[in-house]
Write a protein that binds this DNA or RNA. Structure first.
Lengths: 85, 85, 85, 85
DNA sequence: ACGTTTGCGCTTTAGC
DNA sequence: GCTAAAGCGCAAACGT
């Protein structure tokens, strides 16, 4: 079997793995849509739900951002700092 | 148990299902990145790989349309027009 | 006037110059968006236009390299890739 | 003059306007770099300066974001609201 | 000078 | 179909 064929097969394998994963990822997105739809069918407003999800994400993310900013600031200023654990 | 509590719990459940699915979706994205990285480590060019994934995803007639339009534009602009859609 | 004040003023000046320039830069970006919108209103496809801008920006030999590699990959994957040669 | 030529010329014009604007935008970016360099030559730390610029931007942006979020929230809940002017 | 890491802009996607 | 938000790749900037 030629070298070129081996390489081609390896490339195909990588591509197919990626396509498989992308399909799964798309499936997750679909599932999320379904949950919103189901919640709506139970009388909840999807728009408000999305807002809540976003807020909860922000609260988590904001904490991390604050910590990162503190670290950057401290390092930029050459300050020794300890997190209050 | 009060009615309000039941509803609140149900809402919580929906929100948590969504957050769980979003986390999984993020995991898929990470896996995809990893595959591209692995392919790169094996000597493949991720950029061209992404092009191939895009092309395979495209319907044939869409490709033809896009190509025809691109060719028209290129000739109007005098662009020697080798690659990447 | 104290030394510290002079330095503070100088720093302020630098910062404000930067912020002014960043604002102008953002304005340029907005103008570009407007041109694409205007072109679209005149019947041109912004997506293909962006492709053309990218191609014109590319060096010729880079285009050739990319094209050659893409062709190799496409043939390895059996992608009918008449598209943008 | 043929119709096709008119269209081609119009397209060319749009593309060239875009390229001109992109060049100006790039120029702005270069100017910004220069200011940082000049400030550094005057003894200021570019990293700290960037941090300051970012912080000042965030303060502004956070206000807008808060306002937008409030509006979204109010609209999602169907609440009538007035800003305290 | 190079590799790593962060910030920026673009592209794509989802909701209205 | 459009407008807004998120994900992603790319490039510049910092540290070694």
């Amino acid at each position: 079997m030629a070298e070129g064929t081996v390489a081609a097969d390896q490339l195909r394998l990588f591509i197919e793995r990626i396509e498989r994963l992308e399909a799964e990822k798309r499936g997750m997105a679909d599932d999320i849509r379904d949950v919103y739809a189901e919640a709506k069918a139970n009388g909840y407003d999807p728009k408000i739900m999305r807002l809540m999800v976003r807020l909860r994400k922000m609260e988590t993310h904001t904490r991390q951002e604050q910590a990162a900013m503190a670290e950057t600031y401290a390092s930029a200023l050459g300050v020794q700092y300890w997190l209050p654990l």
